[in-house]
């Protein structure tokens, strides 16, 4: 049901610009006001959330040991530097691998029951599907976002030309098919099928899991529809998008409604982003189990929110409580402390 609600909601979202631009001709609202508001909301609330995370207390380092830590004898027990880093550089490498290669997903395992003569046995096996399709989806999305820079920059930077060339190197059709367009849909459909097909994952999947998937799928499909089927006027669109980034907003004539649907869905994605699970984008950099070296054994850890407590020597203690100790008959190192300090 959660999946169905999300799907219906995305359908409703598509209808809004379809009628808003197609019937009511609110081009300025859907082409200028909404995208600019969406960028503002995305920026401000993302930063607010990151700062709020940054202000929360940092605990004692959590050494998630996916490998051998630096031991007393590194010759005998070789340290696994990238899984169990002991200094800053090794931690940076662990973070780069995590962010760029999703190593945590690589360790995903699947659990199954096997019937044997002596009853059922639990078996664990490596499961790389999630890792593979997650990589496919995220990198396709990255390439697609970078390719879109052609609409926001003039002159167009060289790497955008390079991406366009490599992405369309199969030279299928005109305009050429981009591989990333196909692969992002394949990746998204797998991530969706995984939630729907596996009963265990389906049980824990919420509307907030399905909705981003359907929303990004709708963004991708509306973009594909625009490029390969509706065939929109790219030069008019560039005039509009350049108008946004040069702060001279202007709506050129002759832009197909499919463009406004695409922009509306992207705006919804941007506005939804800071309040959703999609904040794993900045969040991955702040994973406490990944971004701190395992150096608890050779660095003194000062709890950062401790009050400033000065050490108290026994001499000072005896001075403070001398009269009471003398009264109770306790021995004193310095007999002078038995007398009450003179009143000023």
């Amino acid at each position: 049901m959660n999946a169905l609600y999300s799907l219906v909601f995305v359908f409703i979202l598509v209808l809004i610009p379809l009628f808003g631009v197609g019937a009511a001709h609110l081009n300025t609202i859907f082409g200028i006001c909404l995208p600019m508001t969406a960028i503002g909301i995305f920026l401000v609330f993302s930063v607010v959330k990151i700062v709020r995370w940054g202000r929360s207390p940092v605990p004692f380092r959590i050494p998630t040991t996916a490998g051998q830590q630096l031991s007393y004898d590194p010759e005998l027990f070789k340290q696994n530097k990238w899984d169990n880093p002991s200094n800053g550089i090794q931690t940076v490498i662990r973070m780069v691998l995590e962010v760029c290669a999703f190593r945590t997903l690589f360790r995903n395992t699947s659990t199954s029951l096997h019937e044997t003569k002596n009853g059922p046995v639990v078996a664990f096996s490596s499961s790389k599907w999630l890792w593979g399709f997650a990589l496919l989806f995220h990198y396709s999305f990255l390439i697609i976002v970078l390719r879109h820079l052609r609409l926001f920059l003039e002159p167009i930077p060289f790497f955008v030309h390079g991406l366009e060339f490599i992405d369309g190197i199969l030279q299928i059709g005109a305009p050429v098919m981009y591989m990333s367009d196909v692969l992002i849909v394949v990746g998204l459909l797998f991530l969706l099928a995984r939630r729907l097909a596996d009963a265990k994952v389906r049980y824990i999947s919420l509307v907030t899991d399905y909705f981003p998937l359907f929303l990004i799928l709708s963004v991708a499909l509306s973009g594909i529809w625009m490029r390969y089927y509706a065939k929109v006027d790219v030069m008019a669109i560039k005039e509009l998008t350049m108008g946004l980034v040069t702060m001279h907003p202007h709506i050129p004539a002759g832009i197909d409604v499919s463009f406004y649907i695409h922009v509306f869905l992207v705006s919804i994605l941007l506005m939804y982003f800071p309040f959703s699970k999609l904040m794993h984008m900045p969040g991955v950099f702040m994973s406490p189990t990944r971004n701190m070296p395992n150096d608890n054994r050779f660095h003194h850890h000062e709890n950062p929110w401790n009050p400033d407590i000065k050490p108290l020597s026994y001499e000072a203690y005896e001075k403070d409580f001398g009269p009471a100790m003398a009264e109770a008959g306790l021995p004193l190192d310095n007999p002078d402390n038995a007398k009450a300090p003179e009143e000023a």
């Binding site: 920026l43 926001f152 920059l153 005039e239 108008g243 980034v245 040069t246």
Partner: peptide, 15 residues
């Protein structure tokens, strides 16, 4: 995120 805005400061675009 704001780099497209920064690069285009003071520019105007025409088809």
């Amino acid at each position: 995120l704001l780099s497209p805005f920064v690069f285009n400061v003071g520019k105007a675009y025409k088809q």
